[in-house]
Structure formats: structure tokens, C-alpha cells
């Protein structure tokens, strides 16, 4: 690992400085993770009095459980919709803000603040907008399209509600990154293409967009992580996984089965599945970042 040429020789102080970090990570990260891994191989009664080692039984019954399979599909639909909506909107707004030279800072201020709003509160705001009896959007849908809108009873409507609430919160994050990425595109490239007669649209798709691909990759990964994990607050305040399990995404199911239902084995197995998933995503991300470094350097 890289280190300084000139460094201090006192070892005791060095260990002392790193100690708080190590203590916290061991106590609240590694020990619980190990415990979770262990109990995913065990079967125990709800009171935790008897435990039995059952190898992969929890995992096998998990992947045979139609509710779990449904939850996987729900999570995939949810996170890909959130990614599509928030990335398209974020990229579009950033491109526009980057063109409107005189307004860039003002636009950023006006678009940045949803980042500060907690997912749970974003859920509350959208629930009110889309509320079947009081929400203005629900009323508009009913009057203009004759659609009987009810996210509290209708599965697909509930999904639309949580997708909108999550995407809305994420647009500003994606916007900030796309704008930074766009501002880093060398001006000379754009000018050269313009002199060769390329239209603004052509310049965007053949120059800017390919140069944005690292940003695009990073933003996609972050949006997926957000929709997998941090959307918990939205689900918990707005739908509680309902109606009929239609918004029961994986992270909410872990909480429900483990913390509410006290089904330790199954909940731990689900946690381990999620853990493997995030390890995979992180490893992929670092692989890609390394490749990016090789290209440029």
C-alpha cells in the first residue's frame, strides 16, 4: 500500500489512533455479520431456546418460497424503474442546465434540495399527492382519464407511488453528478465537432454521452444501491409492503420476517443473500473503476 516517505515512528500512538474505528467496526459490523451468517445455517424456535444446525436448509426453503421469489421480482421491477426514471430525468436536466450557461448555478440550487429530504418524508409527500380521495393527481387521473386510481388497494398503483417517491428524491443526486461530468467534457472537442458541422444532438450522442459513461456507471450503481436498501423508509411509511405484498421488496421482507415475524433462520438467510449481492456490486464497481484508470492513464 502507498505510504509516506516521511512518517512518525511511534507505534503505540498509531494503534491508539486507529483503535476507535476498529472497535466500532468489529462490534457493530463484523461480529453481527458473522452472527447472521452463522444463524442462516441454523433452525431455531421463536424464543431462541433450541437451535439446530441445518446446513443449507434455510436457503433451500427460501428459494422454494413463492413469496420470496415474488419479492425478488418486485425488487427488480422497482429498482429498474427507479433507475430508469431518475437517471433519464437527472441526465436530461443536467444537459439542459449545462447549456443554459447563465442559469447553471441558479438551476443547481433549485434542483439540489430534494437530496436533503428523507426517503420516508418523500413517501409522505407523494402519498398526499397521489392519495385516492384527497390527492390532486388522483383526482386529475379520474376526471381526465376515468382511471379509478387507488394506490392503497391496487398493486400496480402502489408500485407507481413508491417508484415516483424514490425517483424524485434521487433526481437531484444524479443531477449533481451528471452536471459535474458534463462540465468536465473538454470544450475543445465540442467546438471541433461543431466546426465540422455536427448538430447539437449529434454532438451529444457521439461525444458527450460516451465521455459520460463512467459517471453513468457510477450513478446507476448508486441508484440501485439506494433503491435496494435506503428505500426502506418509503415502504415502511407508505405501503408496509402492501397491498397484498406487491411492494414487499427484499430489504423490507428481511425486516418483516426477522424483526416482526421472528423467523431467525429465514431472515438471516435473506440477509446473507443481500450481503452477497452488495459484495458483488462493490467488486464490480471497483473492477470498472480500475479499468477506467487504465484507459486514461
Amino acid at each position: 500500500m502507498i505510504k509516506k516517505r516521511s512518517y512518525f515512528k511511534t507505534r503505540t500512538l498509531a494503534y491508539f489512533l486507529i483503535l476507535p474505528q476498529i472497535l466500532i467496526t468489529l462490534t457493530f459490523f463484523y461480529w453481527p455479520a458473522a452472527q447472521g451468517l452463522l444463524s442462516s445455517f441454523q433452525l431455531s424456535d421463536p424464543f431462541g431456546l433450541h437451535t439446530r444446525f441445518v446446513w443449507f436448509d434455510n436457503y433451500i426453503s427460501l428459494f422454494k418460497d413463492p413469496l420470496y421469489l415474488k419479492s425478488i421480482v418486485t425488487t427488480l421491477v422497482f429498482s429498474s424503474s427507479v433507475a430508469a426514471v431518475s437517471i433519464c430525468c437527472g441526465l436530461f436536466l443536467a444537459t439542459m442546465a449545462n447549456r443554459a450557461l447563465r442559469m447553471t448555478t441558479v438551476t443547481r440550487t433549485l434542483l439540489i434540495w430534494p437530496y436533503a429530504i428523507a426517503p420516508a418524508i418523500s413517501g409522505v409527500l407523494w402519498l398526499f399527492l397521489l392519495h385516492p380521495s384527497y390527492g390532486v393527481v388522483a383526482i386529475a387521473l379520474e376526471n381526465w382519464f376515468g382511471l379509478d386510481w387507488d394506490p392503497l388497494l391496487e398493486s400496480s398503483h402502489a408500485m407507481v407511488l413508491i417508484v415516483l417517491a424514490s425517483s424524485w428524491k434521487n433526481i437531484s443526486y444524479n443531477f449533481v453528478f451528471f452536471l459535474a461530468g458534463l462540465q468536465a467534457v473538454p470544450h475543445s472537442l465540442i467546438e471541433a465537432a461543431a466546426m465540422d458541422g455536427a448538430s447539437p444532438f449529434r454532438r451529444f450522442w457521439t461525444i458527450t454521452f460516451p465521455l459520460l459513461s463512467p459517471t453513468m456507471f457510477f450513478v446507476t450503481v448508486m441508484t440501485i444501491i439506494f433503491s435496494f436498501f435506503e428505500s426502506f423508509g418509503i415502504i415502511h411509511t407508505v405501503t408496509q409492503g402492501g397491498p397484498g405484498g406487491s411492494t414487499n421488496i427484499l430489504v423490507y421482507k428481511v425486516y418483516q420476517d426477522g424483526f416482526i415475524g421472528l423467523n431467525l433462520g429465514s431472515s438471516s438467510a435473506q440477509s446473507v443473500v443481500l450481503m452477497s449481492l452488495i459484495i458483488l456490486i462493490t467488486v464490480l464497481q471497483f473492477k470498472y473503476v480500475e479499468r477506467k484508470v487504465q484507459y486514461t492513464g
Partner: peptide, 19 residues
């Protein structure tokens, strides 16, 4: 320290609570 990136609280709910 770096590997804690891969262990958000959402994937270790129950054992962290017990801890």
C-alpha cells in the same frame, strides 16, 4: 475498515440489534 462498505445495516438487522 474499507470492507464495511459492503455491510450496510440493512443486511445485518437482527444481529446488530442483538449486539
Amino acid at each position: 475498515v474499507f470492507c464495511t462498505l459492503m455491510l450496510p445495516v440493512e443486511v445485518r438487522i437482527l444481529p446488530t440489534y442483538e449486539m
